[in-house]
Design a protein around this nucleic acid. Structure first.
Length: 469
DNA sequence: GATCAGGAATTAC
DNA sequence: GTAATTCCTGATC
């Protein structure tokens, strides 16, 4: 894939006037090589950015922001306007599942004083009044007409410089090598996510591969078949490590906990806005996600889609990744104490779970909703969230509580004793009963979280909007 | 008898 | 301060 080159601004002259300098401007290199019959560097590098190149996502124009986010250590970070002394400077975005391969800017620093001109030959590139290249933004257009030059160069010197230039070109136009390596993480991540054992191992719902606007590299050279089982294990680890790294970086940037269950309302908003912005998704009114992390975790994919029809799936998938990273972290911590943990038991398939099963039943709900191995789940959960949690698992709790009218948020408690007992277990309130639980539900009438149904029915309640979403 | 409705005090965070 | 719990009385199904 040819690497496009949004060119950075030109640097001011730094060498002395009398100093013999090597022309290194990409435009100059290209023209010179073409003049000498040498092979040109990749053509797209010498033109304005193609129109299909997407502009960068609307991150804050704070380079430190990106550096904090993409603190990959071994990878250079973009530095379009700094580092004046290096010529040319090529910086690549680090590989990340968040990076779109369609937009991989390469910043090239130019030294205007090193320009080389040839009689009768005018560079097609705009030049500043001082003779340096007009600087480009990532997607700016040419700004000025092309002036002529009256400087002449001895052809022998030109040939000598050409040799130097060839070396320079070989050193600095080796992007194909990098291009091959950069998307490998995407290929591996795709393969890992396509591998259903990933989801089975972590007891997760399937994660959509279309991670928002993130475009995975098409596996042109390799089919997934090359990744045989032993390799999958390593791939799986890489994918998980990558996800965890991304989670950690985002935590650092946003200043939030890696555990979504610990998020405050503002944390949730920050995460939602960040994710929407990160994947260049349509913005969503923040009121739709005015909830804490526990509530967010309790949302189903359908809930996400109802709140954000265009971005819901991506948000849900991202949250699943966060859960997975958290789950994996917990599993690692757990294995420190229990070398041979038994695999998570399969979810109950019947509704007639006995009381003895309610511990695991409750834990199963918490694990599936919270994404982690917590026996009793978080006690920092609201009753309405808990009820929605139960309602979201009809295969487990369908005999205790079920939707009557999902779209209008109407549900019925079929087994008041059991629901109350589950609630009491979750909140560590052994004396909980339905009388108390229903009293709490009635408190929601005044708060606008629930309302009485139009036709009063026993054990039937209704969520208010947007809590019914 | 179970549930609903709501007041009031208390507890937990 | 807020949410939930606890206890209570009275009404309804």
């Amino acid at each position: 894939m040819p690497q496009t080159v949004p060119r950075s601004g030109c640097s001011p002259p730094s060498a002395s006037q009398g100093e013999r300098a090597v022309p290194t401007s990409p435009a100059d290199i290209h023209h010179l090589l073409r003049l000498l019959g040498a092979e040109s560097p990749p053509e797209p590098m010498l033109h304005s950015p193609p129109t299909h190149i997407k502009p960068p996502p609307p991150y804050p124009e704070d380079n430190n922001y990106l550096e904090r986010l993409y603190d990959f250590g071994d990878y250079p970070t973009p530095s379009p306007s700094s580092d004046e002394g290096s010529i040319p400077t090529v910086a690549f975005h680090p590989p990340s599942p968040y990076n779109s391969l369609e937009y991989s800017p390469v910043f090239i620093k130019e030294e205007p004083h090193n320009r080389l001109t040839v009689p009768g030959f005018a560079s097609p590139y705009p030049l500043s009044p001082s003779g340096s290249c007009v600087s480009y933004g990532s997607h700016n257009q040419y700004l000025s007409p092309v002036p002529q030059h009256d400087e002449y160069i001895d052809i022998e010197d030109l040939l000598k410089e050409n040799q130097i230039l060839q070396e320079s070109v070989q050193q600095h136009y080796i992007t194909p090598k990098i291009e091959i390596e950069e998307p490998r993480d995407h290929i591996l991540l795709r393969s890992a996510l396509e591998d259903t054992t990933f989801q089975k191992r972590l007891n997760l719902r399937p994660i959509p591969l279309e991670l928002g606007s993130v475009k995975m590299e098409e596996s042109s050279g390799g089919t997934g078949e090359e990744l045989v089982t032993p390799v999958i294990e390593r791939v799986l680890s890489m994918a998980i490590e990558q996800s965890k790294r991304d989670v950690d970086n985002t935590c650092t940037v946003l200043g939030i906990s890696p555990d979504p269950m610990q998020w405050s309302t503002s944390d949730v908003k920050a995460w939602v806005m960040f994710t929407l912005q990160h994947f260049n998704l349509a913005m969503v009114p923040t009121e739709y996600f005015a909830m804490d992390g526990a509530a967010l975790v309790a949302l189903t994919e359908e809930d996400f889609n109802q709140r954000a029809p265009q971005a819901g799936s991506t948000l849900y998938a991202q949250l699943e990744i966060w859960k997975a990273a958290r789950h994996e972290s917990w599993r690692s911590q757990w294995t420190e104490h229990e070398p041979s943990p038994t695999p998570a038991p399969p979810l109950p398939s019947t509704d007639d779970l006995s009381d003895a099963d309610e511990d695991s039943e409750s834990a199963g709900t918490s694990a599936s909703q919270g994404g982690g191995k917590v026996k009793s789940g978080s006690t920092h959960i609201h009753l309405w969230q808990f009820l929605k949690e139960l309602l979201a698992s009809p295969h487990i709790h369908g005999s205790a509580i079920r939707w009557l009218d999902r779209s209008n948020g109407i549900f019925k408690i079929e087994d008041s004793v059991r629901v109350a007992r589950l609630w009491g277990k979750r909140k560590n309130r052994p004396a909980m009963n339905y009388d108390k639980l229903s009293r709490s539900i009635r408190q929601y009438y005044k708060k606008g979280i629930m309302k009485k149904t139009e036709r009063s029915q026993r054990l039937v309640y209704q969520f208010c909007h947007p809590y019914c979403l």
